[in-house]
Amino acid sequence: MRPRELPLRRRLARASVALIYRQAEDGGVELLFIQRARREGDPWSGDMAFPGGRMQPEDATPRAVAERETLEETGVDLTRHGHFQARLSDLVTRQHNRWRPMVVTPYVYEWRGPQAVSPNHEVEQMVWISLDYLAAKENQSRLPWRTPLGTLKLPCCRYQGYCIWGLSYSMLQELLALDVIGH
């Protein structure tokens, strides 16, 4: 199955993220998540996410954005120690401070570099989570989300005190369904 590419994506604001996995010491596979730093006015403050960010004029490609932003946010150098595996489907969200649409493109990498990382001010925590845990039905849950029309119960995965939901959860589900990485 090919990833979905949204028409007109080149005319919209763009962002990219990196889904990074590594072989765990127990022989399994782990996926890297960041917990976003808590900041006033940031609607996703404190949320679990994949490293990434907005495309800048100097970025050659959306994939280069994922690599640059990952290095800036986490110290993980995908150009040196990451092995590109796949591109997932484009998703649409809104820009932080406005209601304009933004296309987010996820890229999957295998990490073969050093374990030491250095998160910057945008990242509160970096967490490696077992892919088997993320795929297990018993770890799936619902997150109540208040809207002016009532409360929605959004699908999520809970791990320790963390909750993976929204775009990150959608990307995770596509990754698991495509079985790009063995687990």
Rank of each mutant, 00 (worst) to 15 (best):
I129K: 09
H83D: 15
Q115N: 13
T70I: 02
F33E: 10
L134Y: 08
L149Y: 14
D42R: 08
L32M: 05
Q115F: 11
S45H: 03
Y109H: 00
R142S: 15
P57S: 13
F50V: 10
V127N: 07
Q23D: 15
R112I: 04
L78T: 07
W99E: 07
Q140C: 12
T147A: 06
A135N: 12
M48H: 04
R112L: 11
D132V: 10
I20W: 04
D90N: 05
G53W: 05
L143E: 13
Y133S: 01
S45E: 06
N97Y: 07
G113S: 10
E58R: 05
A86L: 01
V108H: 08
D26S: 06
K153R: 15
V65Y: 03
M55P: 00
A66D: 02
P148V: 14
F50S: 11
T61A: 06
P62K: 03
N97K: 05
T147C: 06
Y133M: 00
A49V: 01
V117F: 07
P106M: 11
L19T: 00
G27R: 01
V29S: 11
L152T: 08
T151A: 14
H81F: 15
A86P: 03
Y133F: 09
E72P: 00
R36F: 03
Y107T: 04
E30M: 01
V29Y: 07
P106N: 08
A66Q: 02
A60F: 03
A66W: 00
A136H: 13
L143F: 11
T74W: 11
T93E: 15
L19E: 01
Q56P: 00
R39Q: 14
R68Y: 02
